[in-house]
Amino acid sequence: MGVLRRMWLTVASEVSWRLPGRPQRLLAAFALAERGSMLDMLAAVEATDRRELRKKYFLHALDEGRHALVFAERVRALGQLGRAEAAIEDSGKLVEAGIVGGRTLFERLGEPEFLTFVYVAEADAVEQFRVYLDRGLPDTRTQDELRGILKEETFHVSYSRAEVDRYRKEGLPVDWWATRLRLRRLWEGWLRFSRDFGAVMSAFWLGVLYLLVMAPFRLLARLEPGGWQTPAGRPGGDPLVAARMEG
């Protein structure tokens, strides 16, 4: 996994960082991901039964919050943001990108698997950032920031690894979880692609339908006029029956 992944990261980073406008979008995506993990870590502070871990989760969350700001700052500094800028501020994007939403990560996974997730994600991020640093990407200012961030990520890796090792000694299947989490990430990538592809295709077919079917109805429909209108009549009878209607 390691060698292959590094090769892939190298190729991908060479391509993606050098396309015009791409660095901004990547950094915006990082900012969003960091903000998402801040929320995940804060939720863990709230939910954990292991009180000795709370402070670690909390400090971890603060780091992620700071990283999000650093990345957002870099996006702004690089200029020409357009959509990238808006994405940083818009929390709806966190849901759209599948970063948060519904139950929290901690609730879904439970503490041992949550920590395994943290370990896997942080270790991967460290590896990814190392590749960027090795290749001198994307620019020297961002490199400086990445170096600072890397130092903090190393703390995240080390405390979560210690916990994962402890769970392994207790006989929990942490390595299987780690593999499963990596596989799940691939699967979720496919689902996202599949969903986006489906969205494009269904929009296309609905567009075709629009052109084929709507034209004649146009003659019958008109927009409402302005000014006060008499409200439409409400169905009478049992109010409970009416309250169930039209839903």
Binding site: L206, Y210, M214, R218
Partner: peptide, 18 residues
């Protein structure tokens, strides 16, 4: 509203209907 604003609503209609 989509019907009444045909054909200007061509981009909104697929999105809303989906």
């Amino acid at each position: 509203t989509s019907v009444a604003t045909f054909p200007k609503s061509w981009a909104a209609f697929p999105r809303h209907m989906r």
